[in-house]
């Protein structure tokens, strides 16, 4: 029979593993391209369960969508300063674009 202590330790360990494995990433939409810390990115890799925040840093509306087999979503259009997020639960590849400015393209790999 499990002691209360070992259950508590197990729960803490489980909680810890969940919090460390699921990371948050912020990609900026800036000058009509995806940017990470100021540098343009066209390919990006994350772990399953991670969340990406897409932040609009341009002075006009942007959109984010993907029609990939991995995940289909449409975040609509949103103005400067706003950010919208997507959680990627399963491994695979997703092509992410801005519908308004299709030059903005990101190939996302979820490991």
């Amino acid at each position: 029979m499990l002691s209360n202590k070992s259950v508590a330790v197990g729960l803490v360990a489980l909680f810890y593993s969940v919090t460390v494995s699921a990371a948050d990433h912020t990609l900026a939409q800036n000058s009509k391209s995806f940017k990470l810390n100021g540098s343009q990115v066209e390919e990006y890799t994350i772990k399953a369960g991670d969340t990406i925040y897409f932040k609009n840093e341009d002075p006009f509306f942007h959109n984010i969508f993907s029609l990939s087999d991995l995940k289909t979503f449409d975040l609509g259009s949103y103005p400067a300063g706003e950010s919208k997020s997507v959680v990627f639960e399963t491994p695979g590849e997703a092509e992410i674009e801005c519908a308004i400015h299709p030059e903005m393209y990101l190939l996302l790999t979820v490991e």
């Binding site: 959109n63 029609l67 449409d74 519908a99 299709p102």
Partner: peptide, 30 residues
Amino acid sequence: SDNGFHNIGLKDMEDMGRYAIKPIKVLKGA
């Protein structure tokens, strides 16, 4: 040009433009 696609609110428009290529709501009539 921003090489982008926008619905600029023309009257009497049935042509959905870019939406036929990429079926994303914001592109209806863009």
